[in-house]
């Protein structure tokens, strides 16, 4: 299913971040996607199910969460953090600002797939290739 992805702050993300980005709390707070309930049923996803979010920039597995800000069919939200940012687009259109809100994304069910921690995600995606 195609959605428009927006990212941003949440209290939980802020709190988890201040407690340290290594802990599980950070993953819990940020490796989620808030979906419109109707979109969820179309997708066949239930709260807590893993979903794969894929964009032109990459893909990531996060946990589905029923949005408390619905209705907003076709729009989904991932808190700012490494999970969101490995899939948002890069082009700043010569303004300096990447498109953090409004990336087109394809979401599919990924029940049972492991949600990586921040450290695992970073280690998987970026390589230090020096020396």
């Amino acid at each position: 299913m195609e959605i428009t992805l927006i990212t941003g702050r949440t209290v939980a993300q802020g709190e988890a971040m201040e407690k340290g980005k290594i802990g599980e709390g950070f993953t819990k707070a940020c490796a989620v996607i808030e979906l419109d309930p109707e979109d969820m049923s179309k997708l066949g996803a239930y709260e807590g199910d893993e979903v794969r979010v894929k964009t032109d920039s990459g893909e990531v597995v996060v946990v589905a969460k029923k949005s408390s800000s619905a209705p907003h069919p076709g729009v989904a939200f991932i808190p700012m953090g490494p999970w969101a940012n490995v899939i948002v687009g890069g082009d700043t259109e010569s303004t300096g600002m990447p498109p953090f809100k409004g990336t087109k994304a394809e979401i599919t069910l990924a029940k049972g797939e492991r949600v990586l921690s921040a450290a695992e995600l970073v280690a998987q995606i970026y390589t230090k290739d020096k020396e």
Partner: peptide
């Protein structure tokens, strides 16, 4: 690394 798009961080890394 958490908050920039992947394309930017690929170079930083």
């Amino acid at each position: 690394v958490s908050h920039f798009p992947r394309k930017s961080i690929e170079h930083l890394a």
